[in-house]
Computed example of a mutant assay.
Amino acid sequence: MAPWLGPQGGSESPGAGESRGGRYCRTMARASLETAPSLASKAGWPTGQVQRASGQRSGRTEGRRGTKHGPGPEPEEEEGGPAGLWAPWSPDLVVEVAHPQIIHDFGAQILSHADLLVGSPSALAHRDTEQRLLEASRRSGRSVFVARGALWGAEDIARLDAAGGLQSLRVTMATHPSGFRLEGSLGQGPRQGPPRAVLYEGPVRGLCPLAPRNSNTMAAAALAARSLGFDGVVGVLVSDLSLVDRHVIDVELSGPPGPSGQSFCLRTRRENPAEPGAVTGSATLTAFWSSLLACGSPHPSEAGLRLC
Rank of each mutant, 00 (worst) to 15 (best):
M1T: 10
S11Y: 05
E12H: 09
S13M: 12
S13I: 10
S19V: 04
R23T: 06
R26T: 07
L33D: 14
S38Q: 15
K42N: 12
A43C: 13
G44W: 03
V50R: 06
Q51N: 07
Q51F: 09
R52V: 08
R52H: 11
A53H: 11
S54E: 01
G55I: 03
S58Y: 06
G59Y: 02
T61R: 09
R65M: 14
T67C: 12
G72R: 06
P73C: 08
P75R: 09
E77Q: 15
G80N: 07
G84T: 05
W86H: 01
A87L: 15
P91V: 00
V94W: 00
V95W: 04
A98F: 00
A98C: 11
H99N: 13
I103M: 09
H104F: 09
D105T: 02
F106R: 02
H113Y: 02
G119R: 05
G119P: 04
S120F: 08
S122G: 10
L124P: 06
E130K: 11
E130G: 12
R132M: 09
R132A: 13
L134M: 09
E135R: 14
E135G: 13
V146H: 08
V146M: 11
W152M: 13
I157C: 07
A158E: 08
D161I: 07
V171P: 03
M173Q: 15
H176S: 13
H176E: 08
L182A: 06
G184W: 02
Q188K: 14
P194C: 10
P195D: 13
V198A: 13
C208A: 15
P209L: 03
N214K: 05
N214C: 10
M218T: 04
A220C: 06
A221Q: 01
L228Q: 01
V233T: 01
V238K: 03
D240M: 03
D240W: 00
V244L: 15
V248D: 06
G255W: 00
P257S: 01
P259R: 14
S260P: 02
G261Y: 05
G261E: 06
F264P: 09
R269S: 15
E271K: 07
G281A: 05
S282W: 07
S297W: 10
S297P: 04
P298A: 09
L305E: 02
R306E: 02
C308K: 04
